[in-house]
Design a protein around this nucleic acid. Structure first.
Length: 108
DNA sequence: AACATGACCATTA
DNA sequence: GTAATGGCCATGT
């Protein structure tokens, strides 16, 4: 482990933990990955992502909507989420209060 | 090294 | 509810 780019692995590891049917926000991922406050880096890491084993489509912004990307293409993110049970409202946003991922309450 | 851009977030008005 | 501001960091030119 080591160093550089290590942050990316951390972010991917957390994203992989998101269960199907749930969504997580960039800030939430950053916080869980130990990068609290660096939400931007999470988005940047996912942008450079090329691994299909990472459910990047389950990561959305704090507004509950799919963030518009520079490519202008959502890569079918909303479609994938609906396919897993996630629902969008009339405004095209997901009710975080219902679908936001809740980390395993290990020590609870 | 400096500058500009980017799948962001929280606070304040 | 919307609008504007500051912050924080990686990458490419």
């Amino acid at each position: 482990m080591s160093h550089a780019a290590g942050n990316y692995a951390r972010i991917f590891a957390v994203v992989r933990r998101i269960p199907a049917g749930s969504v997580a926000t960039y800030g939430q991922i950053a916080r869980l990955a130990g990068l609290g406050g660096h939400a931007r880096q999470v988005g940047y890491a996912l942008a450079a992502l090329e691994d299909d084993t990472v459910p990047w489509h389950r990561v959305i912004n704090a507004r509950g909507e799919v963030s518009p990307r520079s490519d202008g293409d959502d890569h079918g993110q909303p479609e994938r989420l609906e396919r897993e049970g996630v629902v969008f409202d009339s405004r095209g946003r997901v009710p975080l209060g219902e679908f936001q991922w809740r980390p395993s309450p290990d020590s609870e």
